Computed example of a mutant assay.
Amino acid sequence: MTTHITATRESWLAARRELLEAEKALTRQSDELVRRRQELPWVRVDKAYRFDTEEGSVALPELFKGRSQLLVYHFMFGPDYKAGCPSCSALADGFDGSVVHLANHDVAFCVVSRAPLARLQAYKQRMGWSFPWASSAGGDFNFDFNVSFTEQQQREGGIDYNYERGGHAMDATPVPAPVAEFAAMSGTDAATYARDRPGMSAFVIEDGVVYHTYSAYSRGLDGLWGMYQWLDRAPKGRNEAGIWWRRHDEYGRS
């Protein structure tokens, strides 16, 4: 028998209308955040970043593919990983359906990781994805946009992630169980796994000049998780007691 409160349809409707007012207020607050996000100052990108892609070696402006805006997802797939991060993989399952719509609204989209291109392509084929994925191997792109860190930074506690130093689960001692679990699922150890982090960055190009406009990390990526948007509307919500998700081809395995 359920222990949750039950009601008549009439009383449910009254409670739902009250909740609707709160939802509308949250939507208006979200609209205001979007406006403020778009008002952030732009920072000129002068460094000549290069990426390995299916079309060959390209510069950052070429990732725009003729569009004026570029969205990049920083996917955790370090050079020593054997497979992509399970969390990034779950989030990335929602990318393919959006890419074509973004492209037809003057927005290019690309995933970027530090692993070699051949390894990214093999994993992309395994997952059945079609979105663009570029390798920044050997370059500074990931480091400059605060999603990759050196072993020395890690040893010295010099990791600035999500606009603050320390405080993230991947920097905790002892290593949290979920971090160790996902590191193993990615074919590496926890310390190596934690030298790459998830994030997204936005860029714009005007008169041939690229500007960085926005980046988000950690729970700033929550809105990009398609499954969480659905779970937040399910009767039991996220209902999490730990790490439950897997790569989509791993569910049902013993």
Score class of each variant (00 low, 15 high):
residue 229 Q to F: 01
residue 21 E to W: 15
residue 231 L to W: 05
residue 171 D to V: 02
residue 105 H to M: 10
residue 216 A to N: 14
residue 98 S to H: 07
residue 54 E to P: 10
residue 49 Y to N: 03
residue 164 E to M: 08
residue 34 V to E: 12
residue 234 A to P: 00
residue 55 E to S: 13
residue 16 R to P: 02
residue 40 L to V: 08
residue 104 N to V: 05
residue 231 L to V: 01
residue 107 V to Y: 10
residue 155 R to H: 09
residue 160 D to I: 11
residue 186 S to T: 07
residue 206 E to D: 13
residue 38 Q to N: 14
residue 249 D to W: 06
residue 33 L to I: 06
residue 123 Y to I: 05
residue 152 Q to H: 13
residue 7 A to Q: 14
residue 18 E to Q: 13
residue 94 G to E: 06
residue 181 E to C: 08
residue 124 K to V: 03
residue 198 P to E: 13
residue 141 F to I: 00
residue 32 E to D: 14
residue 61 P to I: 03
residue 8 T to R: 06
residue 42 W to G: 09
residue 14 A to Y: 08
residue 113 S to A: 15
residue 143 F to A: 09
residue 25 A to S: 14
residue 95 F to K: 02
residue 168 H to D: 15
residue 33 L to K: 11
residue 165 R to Y: 02
residue 248 H to I: 00
residue 231 L to C: 04
residue 39 E to T: 07
residue 39 E to P: 04
residue 109 F to H: 06
residue 169 A to D: 11
residue 221 L to F: 01
residue 126 R to T: 11
residue 14 A to I: 12
residue 131 F to C: 00
residue 56 G to L: 07
residue 116 P to F: 01
residue 129 W to G: 04
residue 252 G to Y: 04
residue 82 K to R: 02
residue 125 Q to N: 13
residue 43 V to I: 13
residue 62 E to F: 02
residue 253 R to W: 08
residue 217 Y to L: 04
residue 68 S to W: 07
residue 120 L to E: 05
residue 225 W to F: 10
residue 217 Y to D: 04
residue 46 D to N: 10
residue 154 Q to T: 05
residue 129 W to D: 07
residue 163 Y to W: 12
residue 223 G to N: 04
residue 27 T to C: 12
residue 155 R to F: 06
residue 62 E to M: 04
residue 8 T to M: 05
residue 44 R to M: 12
residue 107 V to S: 07
residue 239 N to T: 01
residue 168 H to A: 12
residue 253 R to E: 13
residue 47 K to T: 06
residue 67 R to E: 05
residue 162 N to Y: 05
residue 46 D to P: 02
residue 139 G to Y: 02
residue 44 R to C: 10
residue 170 M to A: 09
residue 116 P to R: 05
residue 163 Y to H: 12
residue 75 F to T: 01
residue 1 M to G: 14
residue 247 R to F: 02
residue 169 A to P: 02
residue 168 H to Y: 08
residue 57 S to C: 12
residue 167 G to D: 03
residue 143 F to S: 04
residue 213 T to D: 10
residue 216 A to T: 09
residue 64 F to R: 00
residue 117 L to V: 01
residue 131 F to R: 01
residue 44 R to Y: 07
residue 127 M to N: 10
residue 154 Q to W: 10
residue 20 L to S: 13
residue 167 G to A: 01
residue 175 V to L: 06
residue 191 A to N: 13
residue 174 P to R: 02
residue 23 E to M: 14
residue 15 A to Q: 12
residue 95 F to Q: 02
residue 221 L to K: 00
residue 107 V to I: 15
residue 197 R to E: 07
residue 42 W to H: 14
residue 160 D to G: 08
residue 253 R to M: 13
residue 208 G to M: 11
residue 196 D to V: 15
residue 246 R to N: 09
residue 208 G to C: 10
residue 24 K to T: 13
residue 211 Y to L: 07
residue 158 G to H: 14
residue 215 S to F: 02
residue 249 D to E: 10
residue 36 R to P: 06
residue 55 E to A: 15
residue 37 R to I: 06
residue 28 R to D: 14
residue 195 R to L: 15
residue 242 G to Q: 01
